[in-house]
Nucleic acid binder design. Sequence first.
DNA 1: AATTATACTTACCAAAAAGAGAGTATGCGC
DNA 2: GCGCATACTCTCTTTTTGGTAAGTATAATT
Lengths: 141, 141
Amino acid sequence: MAGISSFTREQIAEAEHHLDTPSPETDPKVDRLVNELIGRVADKWTMLILEELNEKGVMRFSEIGRAIEGISQKMLTQTLRLMERDGLVTRTVYPVVPPKVEYRLTALGESLGAAFCGVWVWAERYLEEIEASREAFDTRD
Amino acid sequence: MAGISSFTREQIAEAEHHLDTPSPETDPKVDRLVNELIGRVADKWTMLILEELNEKGVMRFSEIGRAIEGISQKMLTQTLRLMERDGLVTRTVYPVVPPKVEYRLTALGESLGAAFCGVWVWAERYLEEIEASREAFDTRD
DNA sequence: AATTATACTTACCAAAAAGAGAGTATGCGC
DNA sequence: GCGCATACTCTCTTTTTGGTAAGTATAATT
């Protein structure tokens, strides 16, 4: 596989300009790492938490849990821990009882939200077209 | 959750301009569908196939399989079928022996590649920063 | 007549991910 | 002293995912 090198120079230039990035990598080792990273970060719960935090600024653990429908405590803890590890959020513990822990996006986390913005817009823009395609696929033959 | 509404007007305007999109959705039902769609499409194999096809234009089944290291026949078939269903690729069967099937991206597939471009660039741009953050996280305490 | 090539499908099995639910610590109000 | 609230952690079970291997069809090749 060839990293972002498979997309047009215009696409790359656009995206680079958007994020103020130098020249693209083509090293296969970096490619693998980048793909792993995207797999990690393009996860459902990560994206939802990213959205919530971007909207609200600072949030407590259970506040995020309440905001995101269907997330279990386990996945919330797990996802937040991974995001913290990756440097996407900061975790601030207040040594009070009952416990209080606040989460907020780092600059890196915000930049990821911005990068994903294009995909969100794409999904909204083409949602109906895709559903129509599925419908057609499922009822054909 | 509030869809793309959690990002700044500038971010949205940028992305909309990029993809020529009308106003953003805030309907929770659409939100759910959009998130499902992103979950579907932000999959590891889907992204790798997208990259390969964008680079090569047209490819046969086994050609894609050879190009993508580690993919099993099962996952290749499965992913291509889902991509076809979503309208991201076209599948052309030539009734010859041995069988010949060609895949190529649709305009929709290409637009998805373009949308993901920002995330790829983000990942390459911040890969080292993230690895440093993980390192720090893992060795702290 | 056996082998090769291609693009699958199906069945089976192992591993990984995720959900459910209980347990923990502790200061506060009642 | 009891229960509540918070932010977890731990264990158990279920679900999902993915890999492996075998089967299919047939024309050309050896």
